[in-house]
Simulated assay, not measured.
Amino acid sequence: MAFGQLSVKGRALRLLAGREYSRLELERKLAAKEPDPGEVKQALDELQAKGFLDEQRVVESIVHRRAGRVGSGRIRQELQAKGIDAERVAVAVASLNATEFERAREVWRRRFGLLPEDAAQRAKQARFLAARGFSGEIVRRVLNTPDDE
């Protein structure tokens, strides 16, 4: 059976077999091929009731996959873009904040490894960390701490 011939629920299950999706993501993907939004809503309601669609699993999946490479700011942004409710986002970000410095330090160490010698290097390293969602305070701490600590 081709992808276009599957039912809405079948297409949703096929997508969920690959990775966790938030409800909003699935609505967007399925609405592109399904003219009846009521059918999409009903299929997603059924999948959610059966536990196939779970926003907490989406949060855990993103945090697990991304925490080693990006800061809590970037993860917050990704979760919000996926339509995760604000309370779950806040809890996930709060749990990441405890390890933010260590994670930023490891990301910095893998990329650079040496403290900046001049203002241009410092700016480059700071932009690198900021682009990955680490806060200004964390960036300053990483760039002001000798590597042997």
Rank of each mutant, 00 (worst) to 15 (best):
L13S: 06
L13W: 00
L15E: 14
L15C: 07
L16N: 01
A17D: 06
R19Q: 14
R19N: 05
R19Y: 07
Y21K: 01
Y21G: 03
S22A: 14
L24F: 08
L24E: 14
E25P: 00
E27T: 11
E27W: 09
E27P: 00
R28H: 11
A31F: 06
A32E: 14
A32S: 02
A32L: 13
A32M: 05
D36L: 13
P37E: 09
E39Y: 00
E39P: 01
V40G: 05
K41R: 13
Q42G: 04
Q42Y: 07
Q42P: 00
A43C: 13
A43P: 05
D45Y: 02
D45I: 09
L47E: 03
L47N: 06
A49Y: 01
A49I: 03
K50A: 15
K50Q: 15
G51F: 06
F52K: 15
F52V: 03
L53W: 03
D54G: 06
E55T: 11
R57S: 10
V58Y: 13
V58G: 00
V58A: 08
V59C: 11
V59Q: 09
S61Y: 12
S61C: 10
S61G: 10
S61Q: 14
I62P: 01
V63K: 06
H64S: 15
H64E: 13
H64P: 00
R69P: 02
V70H: 02
V70N: 04
V70G: 08
G71P: 06
S72W: 10
G73Y: 06
R74W: 08
I75F: 08
E78T: 13
L79I: 05
Q80N: 00
K82R: 15
K82Q: 15
I84E: 03
E87D: 12
V89W: 02
A90W: 02
V91A: 14
A98E: 14
A98R: 08
T99N: 07
F101L: 12
F101H: 01
R103G: 03
R103S: 11
A104F: 10
A104T: 04
E106A: 13
R109I: 10
R109W: 07
R110K: 14
F112Q: 02
F112S: 08
G113Y: 10
L114H: 11
L114F: 09
P116S: 05
E117D: 02
E117N: 13
D118N: 15
A119Y: 02
A119F: 08
A120E: 13
Q121P: 07
R122I: 06
R122M: 03
A123C: 00
K124Q: 15
Q125I: 03
Q125K: 06
A126D: 07
R127K: 11
F128C: 09
L129Q: 01
L129D: 01
A130H: 08
A130K: 05
A131E: 14
R132S: 03
